[in-house]
Amino acid sequence: MKVLVGVKRVLDAYVKARVKPDGSGVVTDNVKMSMNPFDEIAVEQALRFKEAGQVEEIVAVSIGPAKSEETIRTALAMGADRGILVEADAEIEPLAVAKVFKALVEKEQPELVLLGKQAIDDDCNQTGQMLAALLGWAQGTFISKIELGDGNVTVTREVDGGLERAQIKTPAVVTVDLRLNEPRYASLPNIMKAKKKPVDKTTPAELGVDATPRITTLEVQEPPPRAAGVKVASVAELVDKLRNEARVIG
């Protein structure tokens, strides 16, 4: 089985995001960028399938500026076999990402596409669902457990109020949640090997995808600073405030 894994280059999870002075977006120049943590979990899962002999080839795909090749190299250092970089300098929206993936799926013919449930920069949580719809494939989203079967995948989904188990047919699109696994750190020999692994480069245009944004960003704002808390004199006052001011208890 061949697996396609999406790896997005995002602002590192431990960097404090700063809004550009003109409010047009978030500063990404000269700040640490890393692989989207959910994508790391997707890569880890693909590697576990490969180690279990259930997967033959793992292809890491990134869509974005030329520097996204580093994110692919990180996936290769973790153990992915090869990469595809779809270069796009402009902001690229989930629908365009899904269309690019569709074109790549048609070319690569994987049986499984593993994606993070969302990217931590725009938190859209749309690509996986859109891709499944465009391909007409089954989808399993927010999964915290996955088993490969014969012609199917059994997934455990993290939904409101609990866990939902579902069996879906392959080929399928699966988006992964935080609790699926703990991604590995790349071993030194794999870091060394990563630079020799092939990374193909293409563009949305070459894949026949119109990646022109359809959404205009009006303004990006910093969240308002948290207001100072208040001290309460008694448990009774606390309960009263929780009930009548915060309205979090009935």
């Binding site: 990180t74 750190y185 071993s187």
Partner: peptide, 17 residues
């Protein structure tokens, strides 16, 4: 280089874990 950064990231993860 990105390779150096990966070495640092793996070494840091090893030390922490």
């Amino acid at each position: 280089s990105h390779e150096h950064e990966m070495i640092v990231a793996s070494a840091r993860a090893f030390v922490e874990q």
